[in-house]
Design a binder for these strands. Structure first.
Lengths: 232, 232
DNA sequence: CCTAAAACAGGATGATCAACCTGTTCACGA
DNA sequence: TCGTGAACAGGTTGATCATCCTGTTTTAGG
């Protein structure tokens, strides 16, 4: 009567669920993804999912805590902490994200921004976790700004930098074009160029021509926009 | 067998549907709001809704075009256009939004950002409309920046400003605190204070207290507002 | 006044949803 | 080796979903 091979690998199964859910939530959103979608995509059974995560909400919170949070840590916090300056770190991270997006061919937005936007008002638990993740992101940049002896309020500046980056990703997602990220990187680099410490002005835009300009992005809208996830 | 009073007011019914849907989509999101929720909230019948909007997607697109677009026009484009400068306009709009949020007691985020984030990847039609709305918002600020003879690339700067404002609203939504908006306003004001053209420094960090700045956006809202944006 | 079309009302429908439940298989300690 | 509980498999459940259908009222045109 054995219908399916049982690996009996709790950690592996749990990891597969979280990976599949993180991917699907980014691609189509939390509410647009059904648990049956996750079963289909992961190849697991309903019992397995229900064993590890009794409710969809528990799964969503786990995705936030165990996938989105590490993504923020790995993409933003660690690189900024280890960069020479806040300016350097931010520019490098944005460049990395941009190349990653161009390589992928589709822009899916900021993982934290996507889930926070959809779920913050829906449930206080989601909202609290999202608020903490935003705060951690902000704090990492603020700490680096203080380390740089940047003028002004580090917290307020960090808050605006986080806002600009997540907002740029939202714009890039809507336009399916990474130009907004390039603009954000250039503007922030200019903003963070302290005149008294560093006299090197960054160029406004690398390949600029006033009228009909187009930020140089290797692959524009040509690539396949849709992922393999069929979520109409 | 007349069960319900029929007003037979097509425009009014259509308006009520759109208003209810706009409100519900902001409060809970598109997918989290069922059509039965809308019927309950509006007090209308399923037949009425189906007559005006055959599908939920059609309703969602209409909300974007006929409610979100005018909101962007009224909240951002017109005030910025009529302000003394881009800097003045942006600071005033952010102050107006902040006082509106504080008065309301809850932060629901950027109407465009919310719907765009949830629906951009779900459907190309939604994505296209959202992209156009972002572009219109961006263009209005860029035009004002050029009018001010601001240094640098006006389009890139406008893109970052839009990103910062929508991102600040997303953060404020997650934190249920308008501090991110205040930080955004101060940082942008400083960014837009050109040292070579204008030596007035913005006050360092009055995050919660503001001086006697006018919040006269409401008078702008009352004026003649073009409700149709160029959509495709 | 008559007719046709628009503008609704009020369910009906099949699909899909999240949650759960019973049964089976495994790991592991005694 | 036996027992116990974790780790699944696979199907079921009642609710809810978006959509559509039939019937009735109203408006508009001739």
């Amino acid at each position: 009567m054995a219908g399916r091979i049982r690996s009996n690998d709790p950690e592996g199964v749990r990891r597969r669920i979280l990976d599949t859910a993180f991917e699907a939530f980014q691609a189509g959103g939390y509410h647009a993804t059904s648990v049956q979608d996750l079963l289909r995509l992961s190849g697991l059974s309903g019992g397995a999912l229900h064993h590890h995560f009794p409710t969809k909400k528990a799964l969503g919170l786990a995705v936030l805590r165990e996938r989105v949070a590490p993504a923020v840590e790995m993409t933003w916090i660690a690189p900024v902490r280890e960069a020479a300056s806040a300016r350097e770190g931010i520019v490098q991270v944005l460049a990395a994200i941009r190349s990653e997006l161009d390589r992928r061919g589709a822009v899916r937005g900021c993982p934290l921004g996507n889930m926070a936007s959809e779920l913050a008002l829906a449930d206080p638990d989601f909202r609290t976790v999202a608020a903490h993740l935003f705060a951690a992101w902000r704090s990492a940049i603020a700490a680096k700004l203080r380390e740089d002896d940047a003028p002004g309020d580090a917290e307020a500046l960090a808050s605006t930098i986080v806002a600009a980056c997540s907002g740029a990703m939202a714009q890039a997602k809507a336009a399916q074009d990474s130009a907004a990220l390039a603009a954000c990187a250039n503007t922030l680099a200019q903003l963070l160029t302290s005149p008294r410490h560093d006299s090197t002005m960054i160029e406004p835009v690398p390949a600029q021509s006033r009228k009909g300009r187009r930020v140089s992005v290797s692959s524009d809208l040509a690539g396949p926009v849709q992922t393999e996830l069929a979520l109409e």
